[in-house]
Computed example of a mutant assay.
Amino acid sequence: MNSLIEVLTKYSSMFWNAVVTTLLLSLFTVVFATVFGSFMALMKISKIRILRYIANIYVEFIRGTPLLVQVYVVFYGLPMLGVELPTFDFMGNNFSRLFPGILAMVINSTAYICEIVRGGILSIETGQMEAARSIGFTRSQAMRLVVFPQAVKNFLPALGNEFVSVIKNSSQVSVIGVAELMYITNTVRGISYKTIEPLIIVSIMYFIMTFIISSLVKRLEVRLAVKEAR
């Protein structure tokens, strides 16, 4: 116990910076993946066949390959294709490593959020679309102004759960040197010669973050259920 407290006290600033980096990495991922996932969901339910094919291929391929492989492909593959990565520092991280980490996670999470959003849209009864069309809305206007706002209430809880998954999956980008929690944990293990204590600390930190977000998601579900009951 004393050894655990000693490690936490001595390297608290490193762990704290790693928590901030992990949360920012996860937040950026969820925000951008929600935007792209929503467009991808609209493509999957589109009446245009080519858009449905593109969306289906993307979702099936990304969901069928590991995030770790995608991180490696983005980090090593983009420079080989001549894509220049940003090199400025951001919160102690070299952005040339943080950017591909965010990009790989966005690519991965977009496929899952696409299915979440699509499920939310399909949960709205078709009469809503028909009613909007009957008063002169185009299909796109009806989807944007009538169906999608209602669907948001249905998929928000699932989106919160995806945020929890993204926080845990962010540990995968440690392999390319992003200074998130797992990377810092391995660093502390190396310089402190403590093997178990840093792992216990990082486990508790992950649990606290995911527990708080899960609790907020549950509260959101309850409030939405109450509003629906009214």
Rank of each mutant, 00 (worst) to 15 (best):
Thr138Phe: 00
Pro149Asn: 06
Val147Gly: 02
Ile167Lys: 10
Gln128Ile: 02
Ile124Arg: 14
Arg144Trp: 02
Cys114Ala: 15
Gln172Trp: 01
Ala151Val: 05
Glu130His: 14
Ser109Gly: 03
Gln141His: 00
Phe163Asp: 01
Val152Glu: 01
Val173Phe: 09
Lys153Met: 05
Ser165Glu: 07
Leu145Lys: 14
Ile167Asn: 07
Ser134Val: 08
Phe137His: 13
Ala142Lys: 02
Gly160Asn: 10
Ala158Tyr: 13
Ser170Asn: 06
Ser170Cys: 05
Ala151Ser: 13
Ser165Thr: 13
Ser165Lys: 04
Arg118Met: 07
Ile121Val: 15
Leu159Cys: 06
Ser123Glu: 09
Glu125Met: 01
Asn161Ser: 13
Thr126Tyr: 12
Ser109Asn: 14
Asn161Leu: 11
Ile121Gly: 10
Ala142Asp: 01
Glu162His: 04
Gln141Trp: 00
Glu125Ser: 14
Gln141Asn: 11
Gly127Val: 14
Phe155Ile: 09
Ile116Leu: 01
Val164Asp: 11
Ile113Gly: 02
Arg144His: 08
Val146Leu: 04
Ser134Leu: 12
Ser109Arg: 06
Val173Gly: 01
Ile116Asp: 01
Val152Asp: 02
Asn154Glu: 09
Pro157Met: 14
Asn169Gln: 11
Val173Tyr: 04
Ile116Asn: 03
Val147Thr: 12
Gly160Leu: 11
Val164Phe: 04
Ile124His: 05
Gly127Met: 06
Glu130Cys: 11
Glu115Trp: 05
Ala142Gly: 15
Gln141Glu: 14
Gly120Thr: 05
Arg144Asn: 12
Leu122Val: 08
Ser140His: 05
Thr110Val: 15
Val166Trp: 02
Val166Glu: 08
Gly119Tyr: 08
Val117Ala: 07
Ser140Gln: 06
Phe137Trp: 01
Pro157Arg: 11
Gly120Ile: 04
Ile116Cys: 03
Gly119Ser: 14
Val147Ala: 04
Val152Leu: 12
Gly120Cys: 07
Ser140Gly: 00
Lys168Ile: 04
Leu122Thr: 12
Ser174Asp: 09
Tyr112Ala: 07
Pro149Gln: 05
Val147Phe: 00
Thr126Met: 10
Gly160Gln: 05
Cys114Thr: 15
Ala151Asp: 03
Val164Pro: 07
Arg144Leu: 09
Phe155Met: 13
Phe155His: 10
Arg144Thr: 08
Val166Thr: 09
Ser123Thr: 09
Met143Ile: 13
Met129Arg: 06
Gln172Ala: 12
Gln172Leu: 13
Thr126Ile: 08
Gln172Arg: 00
Tyr112Cys: 11
Val117His: 05
Leu159Thr: 12
Thr110Asp: 09
Val147Lys: 05
Arg133His: 09
Val152Ala: 01
Asn161Cys: 08
Gly160Pro: 09
Leu159Asn: 11
Ser170Tyr: 03
Cys114Trp: 00
Ser174Trp: 00
Val166His: 03
Thr138Gly: 13
